[in-house]
Amino acid sequence: MTEDEDDLVGRLRAIAVRVDPPPEVVAELARAALSTRRIDAVLAELVQDSTTEMPALARGADEQLRLLSFEHGTVSIELQVHSTGDTVSIRGLVGGATGDVTVETPGGSRSTPIDDEGWFTVDGLAAGLLRLRVPAGDTTVTTSWITP
């Protein structure tokens, strides 16, 4: 690379710093992100994701279905994530765990019971990152963050 090129990139960088820097709120949220770390939960491994195997299962221009499977030890979490516009609903099947499933978003969390056959349903979630956790013995199993 030549000196001229470095000069030009340097000028561009100086301009970007002035006209398009990361907003301060973005940095603040990033610093606050550390609080989402859960040392009491073990991360379930993503073993299957429909979006990596086939084009998204589009049902219409505005609708998408994503199938995800997570596993940790004897605990399995299978999800059908259905997105419609800005709303997300989840139908899930949990194996190896009972009780309540907690759906967590960056903005909060809510719980819903797992039924006798392992199923649960959560409707009306806002589009955006979410993750689920289920109690498993004396620990908690959590999925990674999912982008519906």
Binding site: V26, A30, A33, R37, L43, P106, S144, W145
Partner: peptide, 16 residues
């Protein structure tokens, strides 16, 4: 862009 950046940081927290 703010969402994409924040999602990336959340994934790093998860994978620290």
């Amino acid at each position: 862009a703010a969402d994409a950046v924040q999602n990336t940081w959340l994934r790093l927290v998860e994978n620290l």
